[in-house]
């Protein structure tokens, strides 16, 4: 599953959406407030794992290219 955006976008988006919805929905919106931030945090964490996996893979391939069996090309 690929999610759009960066982790920070989801967290900031969750906070902003919660604060924006507090005004029109007032007290009756509390079940919604309780769902927005956990969902945003879940999406941000999934994106963070994907970003870390990409960084690990990139680091691994860079090390392979620098190893003696794969000398860097000029």
């Amino acid at each position: 599953m690929t999610l759009p955006g960066r982790p920070v976008d989801w967290i900031v988006g969750g906070v902003v959406l919660t604060l924006v919805l507090i005004y029109p929905l007032g007290g009756i919106g509390w079940p919604l407030y309780l769902f927005i931030m956990p969902l945003a945090m879940t999406a941000a964490t999934v994106l963070a794992y994907q970003e870390a996996a990409r960084a690990r893979a990139a680091g691994l391939s860079a090390r392979r290219e620098q190893s003696p069996s794969h000398p860097p090309q000029e």
Partner: peptide, 15 residues
Amino acid sequence: RYAGPGVRPLTRVLI
């Protein structure tokens, strides 16, 4: 943190 180099600080915190 369980992450390689070149990863943003927030990503390190989240994972």
